Computed example of a mutant assay.
Amino acid sequence: MGPRGAPLLAVVLVLGLCALVESEKPSPCQCSRITPKNRKNCGFPGITSDQCFDQGCCFDSKVAGVPWCFHPLPKEASEQCVMEVSARKNCGFPGISPKECASRQCCFSSLISEVPWCFFPQSEQDCHY
């Protein structure tokens, strides 16, 4: 193999390794708490649930007219804190610190402005595949 073959071999090996690594299956809360109208397509026509989960996406074929394989909600430190921002119920006040929010036994996420950063958790009992 000549000097130009080594970089090509490295690229092929990296791509092969990437294909072997499966994405982590999202949690039930990341999938069941997203409303059907907010689903963002993650698959292709005819995708199976296993293929969808292998891509790290959610699968739910119960609702017609919306993507069945879709991107999950963002992972949170606690499953009780996984929810759409529209579902957040304020548990604090503007400028509350993460520590004070936690002392109220609430969830904290400051990633999105103009929504409650400190919000009440939800029971995990409604989470399912």
Rank of each mutant, 00 (worst) to 15 (best):
P36I: 03
S97K: 15
S78R: 15
Q80Y: 06
I34Q: 08
A19G: 02
L13R: 12
G95Y: 05
S61M: 06
V115A: 02
G56K: 11
S86I: 13
I112W: 02
N41M: 08
S86G: 08
S32F: 06
Q55L: 13
A19S: 10
C101R: 12
P7K: 00
F44G: 10
S109F: 09
G16A: 04
F108T: 00
G92H: 06
A64W: 09
A6S: 15
L8R: 08
E114Y: 12
R104M: 08
G5S: 12
E76Y: 12
E22W: 14
D60A: 00
V63N: 01
S86P: 03
F59Y: 15
D60N: 08
C52K: 07
H71I: 10
C107S: 09
E79M: 13
S103I: 00
P67L: 11
Q80G: 11
F44M: 13
R39C: 01
P67S: 09
C91L: 05
E100C: 12
I34M: 13
S61G: 09
N90Q: 13
K40C: 00
S103W: 10
E79K: 13
D54E: 14
T35G: 02
R33V: 01
D54N: 15
V12R: 07
A6M: 14
Q55P: 00
C81S: 06
A10Q: 10
G5W: 08
L20Y: 06
F59L: 06
C69M: 10
Q55N: 12
K37C: 00
G16W: 10
P45Q: 14
K37Y: 02
P74R: 07
V21H: 12
L13A: 15
A19Q: 11
W117L: 09
N90G: 11
R88K: 07
V82A: 02
L17K: 11
L15Q: 08
P26G: 01
P74Q: 08
D54I: 04
G56P: 03
F93K: 11
A64M: 10
K25C: 02
I112Y: 04
I34R: 15
C81P: 03
V63T: 09
Q55A: 11
C91H: 05
P72K: 09
P116Q: 05
F119T: 01
V115L: 02
W117Y: 07
K75T: 01
A102R: 14
I112M: 05
P36W: 01
C29K: 04
L9I: 14
I47E: 13
L17E: 06
K37S: 02
F93H: 14
A10V: 15
D54V: 03
S97G: 10
V21N: 07
K62D: 14
P36E: 08
S49V: 04
E100S: 12
A87S: 15
K62W: 11
G46K: 04
G46F: 05
I96Q: 05
G56C: 03
F44T: 13
C52G: 04
L20S: 09
A64V: 06
N41F: 00
V63P: 01
V63C: 02
V82C: 03
